[in-house]
Design a protein around this nucleic acid. Structure first.
Length: 285
DNA sequence: ACACTGCCCTGCGAGC
DNA sequence: TGCTCGCAGGGCAGTG
């Protein structure tokens, strides 16, 4: 499932291809893929505008239009955003089964949105409504502002660490894969109340988050099943995962102890009980 | 403030 | 082989 590194990889591949292209059509093949506004309004706003840039905010791909409007695309679990040069490849008229939306671009190109599970969402924000993005999305973990002090403020609440790190309103872009990996790297138990972390633990967690995300971006993202870059290439970071997706009982890559698997916020969570002890565990030693 | 449930969806692997 | 079932999960609404 695409998280920050996958979305960033897609952004990087799409930016040079989309910038300067004019949107000349928007075709919707699954109605709910467009979250808002209504299709006719969305078409009216985007058709005829030019893509001025491709940004990322959290897990959102953001197409900046020269009108000042923004098209945001959330891939959720199985969304794929593929660029196709219609001059080279045949047009997507054959209604492939998982194709949900088509941006027709001039000259001679298409941006295709595929999504098997139909959870992905495309939205259009105006200059006025785009401010709400920053109230629903928290700090960017790869921005300079994501300091140990900034993270310490976020952690200043009695909430389970993993649940907090997954909260997009606090930190934007982390999902199940990279939260598990970052907690493993920082040797922190996913159920630790966030406000029990010491100063050095906060610093280690910040470093772990930045390292895990940066490494994944360098590897062009994690491809477990569906994820592909904007040009259809899989990533390589799946080979660097230490805990995510590993079955319970499989050996920890660091200490050899059997990994544990629990559920946190309805999400499977894998960690090493030896490397990532609870506070109670540490006191009992 | 926090945790939990159910919903949206489909493909896949396990079990029978 | 062919079926059913549980699981995967990001975000959100609703409940406790």
């Amino acid at each position: 499932m695409p998280e920050l590194p996958e979305v960033e990889t897609i952004r990087r591949t799409l930016e040079p291809l989309l910038t300067g292209k004019r949107i000349q059509s928007f075709e919707l093949l699954w109605a709910r893929t467009l979250a808002f506004p209504a299709l006719t309004d969305a078409r009216h706003s985007m058709i005829g505008t030019t893509i001025a840039g491709v940004r990322r905010r959290g897990k959102l791909v953001v197409l900046e239009l020269d009108s000042g409007d923004l098209i945001t695309i959330h891939l959720r679990m199985t969304g794929e955003l593929l660029y196709r040069d219609a001059g080279i490849l045949p047009r997507a008229t054959e209604r492939e089964p998982y194709l949900r939306a088509i941006f027709g671009l001039s000259p001679c190109a298409e941006l295709l949105f595929y999504d098997t599970r139909k959870f992905g969402r495309i939205s259009l924000y105006t200059r006025e409504t785009s401010a709400s993005l920053d109230t629903t999305l928290g700090i960017e973990p790869l921005d300079a502002g994501f300091t140990t002090a900034a993270l310490a403020i976020i952690l200043r609440r009695e909430r389970r660490l993993k649940s907090l790190l997954l909260d997009q309103q606090l930190i934007a872009g982390l999902g199940n894969i990279y939260v598990d990996e970052a907690l493993f790297a920082a040797r922190l138990h996913p159920l630790r109340p966030a406000n029990t972390l010491g100063e050095s633990e906060v610093a280690e967690l910040r470093t772990a988050i930045v390292d895990v995300l940066s490494t994944a971006i360098a590897g062009h993202g994690t491809t477990l099943r569906d994820y592909r870059s904007g040009l259809g290439e899989p990533g390589t970071n799946q080979h660097r995962l230490h805990v995510y997706g590993k079955p319970a009982g499989s050996p920890c890559s660091r200490c050899g102890a059997p990994l544990a698997r629990i559920s946190v916020d309805q999400r499977s969570t894998t960690f090493c009980p030896e490397c990532q002890p609870t506070v109670a565990h540490m006191l009992n030693r």
